[in-house]
Simulated scan of single mutants.
Amino acid sequence: MDHLSPTPVGTLARRWQWLLIAVIAGWLIWLLAPVLTPFVLAALLGWLGDPLVDRLERSGRSRTIAVVLVFTLMLLLVVLALVILVPMIERQIVTLIESLPAYRDWFVQKALPWVEQRTGLELVTWLDPDKLTEWVRAHWQQAGGVAATMFGYFSRSGFAVMAWVANLVLLPILTFYFLRDWDTLVERIAALVPRDHIATVNRLALESNDVLGAFLRGQFLVMLALGAIYAIGLSVVGLKVGLLIGIIAGLISFVPYLGTATGIVLGVIAALVQSGGDWPLVAMVLGVFVAGQMLEGYVLTPRIVGDRIGLHPVAVIFSIMAGGQLFGFLGMLLALPVAAVANVLLRFAHERYKQSPLYAGDRPSILLDSYIDKGSIDQAQAREPEDK
């Protein structure tokens, strides 16, 4: 049977083959990123809804009926959120637009002079209308080139908007089919796994599914909770655009500390403009975010997300930034799933490393037999005459 065992050259060749497949897959994802975005988002929604579909199916309903029920529930939740949030956000945007002159005056009369006093830069003079007009006349040709560039950008943006509309239309259709055929897709992918690795792949897939499910579902609930806490808290303390700022801070809180930092900056600026520089409103805004962070750190994240996931905030931030840099919006969608799976693979590699000769060494571990068994040997020798 020795001729059936893989040689080192054969093992190395297979590893290079897998590496080549991974490189080609990454290149295709980068090339097809705009097209793949609705498919990836629909696959995530299908994966999130599949456990509920399976539960309904186990209760005696057919797969199609279970999928229709879960899909309808998803649509109702989206419609309910739009019906409740869109009018509120619309009123907040109107309030913000009406307050823009106050923000402009605060920026020109207070913020910029404060920066000038501490940096020595002359910033206010650049906002003089006469100076701006003179600068435009002096750079008219360049401005024409910039205008042409901007026109081309907006033309491309129009096509981008059309693509987004098409993606929004495709998203519910793709989600329905992923919900209906999710188990079939998993079975077909599992059938492609080499049989001598099926046990390891099955174990890693189950661990990745548990980690990813706990993180995404838990983080989504934490986002909703933080958005509600910030929006209600800022509105209660009297901030006019508190609802809008709270929703923004909650939505981007999936990036650790980014939601809180963004909310604090926006909230403090809005409080300074609204109160005319008085600090009580600013202090109350800061208190809302401090209370939200304490609730997240001591109540929401431990109870909803849990500590067994093992995704460090630095790893989350890096994965989102790297995914966005490499693959754009698609990369940001894939960042957290890839980070969760990579975390499981790293734990498995660490386990294999601790069991390998590279860690334990080639020599057997030293057993101190001479010290451990010396007393028992002496006792056995002393009992020999008695036994005779």
Rank of each mutant, 00 (worst) to 15 (best):
M1R: 14
D2Q: 06
L4R: 13
P8H: 08
P8Y: 06
T11C: 00
L12Y: 02
L12I: 10
A13S: 07
A13E: 02
R15D: 04
L20F: 12
A22K: 00
A22I: 10
A25D: 03
L36F: 06
D50R: 15
D50L: 09
V53T: 14
R61P: 04
S62T: 15
R63L: 09
A66C: 04
V68F: 09
M74P: 00
V83P: 01
I84E: 08
P87A: 06
M88Q: 07
I89D: 01
E90L: 03
R91N: 09
R91S: 06
V94H: 10
S99G: 03
F107W: 11
K110F: 14
L112D: 03
E116S: 03
L121H: 02
L123G: 03
W126Y: 11
D128V: 06
E134Q: 14
V136H: 11
A138C: 04
H139D: 14
Q141D: 06
A148G: 13
T149D: 12
F151T: 13
G152F: 09
G152K: 13
S155L: 12
S155W: 14
A163K: 05
V165M: 15
V169T: 03
T175G: 06
L179F: 08
W182F: 12
I189K: 01
A191M: 10
V193Q: 04
P194V: 08
I198W: 12
A199W: 05
N202A: 15
R203E: 14
L206M: 07
E207L: 10
V211E: 04
V211I: 08
L212G: 05
A214F: 03
R217K: 15
R217A: 06
G218N: 01
Q219F: 11
L221D: 04
A231H: 04
I232R: 05
S235H: 13
V236R: 15
G242D: 06
L243T: 11
A249P: 01
I264Y: 02
I264E: 03
V273Y: 09
S275M: 07
L286C: 11
M294K: 02
R308N: 11
G310N: 09
G310K: 01
L311A: 01
V314L: 13
V314K: 02
V314A: 05
I317Y: 00
S319D: 00
M321S: 00
G323E: 04
G324D: 04
Q325L: 05
L326P: 05
F327T: 02
F327L: 08
G328Q: 02
F329W: 10
L330E: 03
M332H: 02
A335Y: 02
P337R: 08
A339H: 08
N343G: 13
L345N: 06
A349W: 13
Y353S: 04
K354S: 15
P357D: 00
Y359W: 13
A360M: 14
R363M: 04
R363W: 01
S365N: 11
S365Y: 09
L367Y: 12
I372T: 13
I372F: 14
G375W: 05
D378L: 10
Q379G: 05
A380P: 03
E386A: 09
D387K: 11
K388N: 09
